[in-house]
Design a protein around this nucleic acid. Structure first.
Lengths: 130, 130
DNA sequence: CGGAATCCGTGATGATACTG
DNA sequence: CAGTATCATCACGGATTCCG
């Protein structure tokens, strides 16, 4: 005799994701590797392995996944040349360039103020070293 | 006889985190709830539960955690009044306001272009529905 | 070279219950 | 009201292997 289990509705983990599609896009461009990919491509087009070396510390899987997401969103153009060995170039679309500039502006802002933040953190931490 | 295993160095999960402190700050302000908290506080100060209702879908734990992180970074000011029942108001610092404006600019950009992205995604998905 | 597929650990996230 | 503590989960990210 099996017990009838109501099976909690899988549904979206939280409501915002469904309500706010721009949230996903925001998470794509501000994702761990998304920021760095966009920043790199803002400079010039890159090949896959070139990008991997440039960014440093990213696994093949995550780089491929990040690039696919950004390509699907229409931010990155993928140019796969049918040669051997394979050669694939990635570059920004017009839309991607706009996004990259926004993200890059935010990234530069944080870089400029990282010292302010560090000091604030020290004050905060010391105040509760009680 | 046990085999001597070199034991892969635990070390930092990836190099960028250690190399680039601004990455952490960037992740704080662009985190799932960080963006929404900063956006809300850009409008006006909020109390805890008020903020929770306004944002919607955020657990107490995550909201508290997000606010603490942002406070530690010097973006958010926490004003706890010693009354009963407790009343705590959150507002932006000068630094936080700058950060919030940057983040909000990025958020607005994605909102404006979310339709472009949606169309790009449809094209992408259809092209490989092979 | 540029991936795709698989397995797997763990840290982030959320639900619940409790506290001052 | 404004949290903290505890526990369960699950998606993110890494390592490895295989393919065209």
């Amino acid at each position: 005799m099996s017990v009838s289990i109501p099976a909690a509705q899988p549904l979206p983990p939280n409501v915002m994701d469904a309500m706010c599609p721009s949230r996903q896009v925001l998470e794509h461009v501000t994702s761990r590797w998304g920021v760095l990919v966009l920043a790199a491509l803002l400079e010039r087009p890159y090949r896959f392995s070139e990008l991997r070396r440039f960014i440093g510390g990213v696994s093949e899987k995550m780089l491929a996944q990040t690039l696919q997401t950004l390509e699907r969103d229409g931010f990155v153009h993928r140019d796969a040349q049918p040669v051997i060995p394979p050669r694939v170039d990635y570059s920004l679309t017009a839309l991607g360039r706009e996004a990259a500039e926004q993200v890059w502006a935010l990234a530069r802002w944080t870089e400029r103020h990282v010292d302010d933040v560090r000091r604030a953190q020290e004050v905060y931490d010391e105040a509760r070293a009680s």
